[in-house]
Design a protein around this nucleic acid. Structure first.
Lengths: 191, 191
DNA sequence: AAAAAACTACCGACCGGTTGTTAGTTTACA
DNA sequence: TGTAAACTAACAACCGGTCGGTAGTTTTTT
């Protein structure tokens, strides 16, 4: 389907070159049609971009949820580490992850507010999951009895750190950083 | 001086709108001159951008060095936390920090290699400092005797996480994350 | 001290090329 | 034959960058 091809290509180019760095002509060329033909499938560059952003956010949340489901029943330690690995995998699936981070940190200026609103709608979905997970860890006596909120925030920060590193350093370096960050984090909260 | 004003304005716009999102006309307008007059001070958009990037990298390294110098003789714990705070301050000076992160993570595609080369030239300058600091901490029996490289990498990851958060969350939220991240990190490595 | 030359700072007009987008027309398929 | 999807042609607006030229100041020469 041409429509799918347009979405795939737009995702790739927006991720790699940014919103301003991607022209409709670029997209059309890579799809294999002429620029005006795009408008049989798309209302505007802006709406194409926004619809793709929605897909990206949704994929992210789904990915986290799914990878946790698969490990349900496992130790909290293993579940948490699995999340770290899953998210680093999601982000390393180049285009999805790249666009996710790019748009979160540096959205095109005129779309900033729109994007922020859409992001916050997704953000809450993951919060609850982690709070429960850390509570369970404390209950199971895997994790030191302390302020849950502190643990969650520290975990998010670790997550953001690794996410960022994926775009700066090579894959092996990122793995080292993941292992190091996780090691110290777990030392910091385990009983 | 007009030349200074151009540099200040260009830094601001490149940071806020990105390379592709900033036109020479935009810069000129904000400086208060017409576009052709810009070219009395600047050879090209590209060279203007690269010279500003160099300034940004240099500022970053200088800032870290200076904030460490001021705390020399203090406990390693305090010195490390000071670095965290200093860098979050540097990054929160909106435009310098914003352009630093933007260019590191999502450089304009045609300048990617050039920028990477310039970054690596600066990167090494901070490495040595941290290794020595952690070694000192172990020697002073503030820090558990373990793999120094692991500690440094975990610290960098914490740093990157907080840096990233500055662009996603509000200042109070970032402070919470900094405190949480630091608390767990230090718990993870202290004796 | 006066005249000439050089320099600085700036601008309007313009270049070739690209941007997102529309209108009207042809092609392919059911 | 009708409909969907592709096309060509064109649009106004903007892009980075250059040109020739004009004031006003500074420096050099006579």
């Amino acid at each position: 389907m041409t429509s799918d091809s347009i979405n795939r290509t737009a995702l790739e180019l927006f991720a790699e070159c940014g919103y301003d760095g991607t022209s409709m002509a670029d997209i059309a060329k890579q799809v294999g049609i002429k620029k005006p033909s795009l408008y049989n499938y798309v209302n505007s560059k802006e709406s194409l971009f926004l619809s793709i952003i929605d897909d990206v956010f949704r994929s992210y949340v789904d990915y986290v949820n799914q990878s946790l489901d698969e490990r349900q029943g496992d130790t909290v330690k293993n579940q948490l580490k699995q999340v770290l690995i899953s998210i680093s995998q999601f982000l390393s699936s180049r285009h999805l992850g790249m666009l996710y981070m790019r748009v979160l940190m540096f959205p095109p200026l005129d779309l900033k507010e729109t994007i922020n609103r859409r992001f916050e709608a997704f953000e809450g979905e993951t919060d609850e999951i982690f709070i429960e997970l850390f509570k369970l860890g404390v209950h199971n006596q895997e994790i030191k009895d302390g302020d849950i909120e502190t643990y969650v925030q520290a975990f998010y920060t670790l997550l953001d750190g690794i996410s960022t590193d994926m775009f700066i350093y090579s894959q092996p370096k990122v793995n080292t950083k993941l292992e190091s960050g996780w090691y110290v984090f777990w030392q910091g909260i385990c009983v």
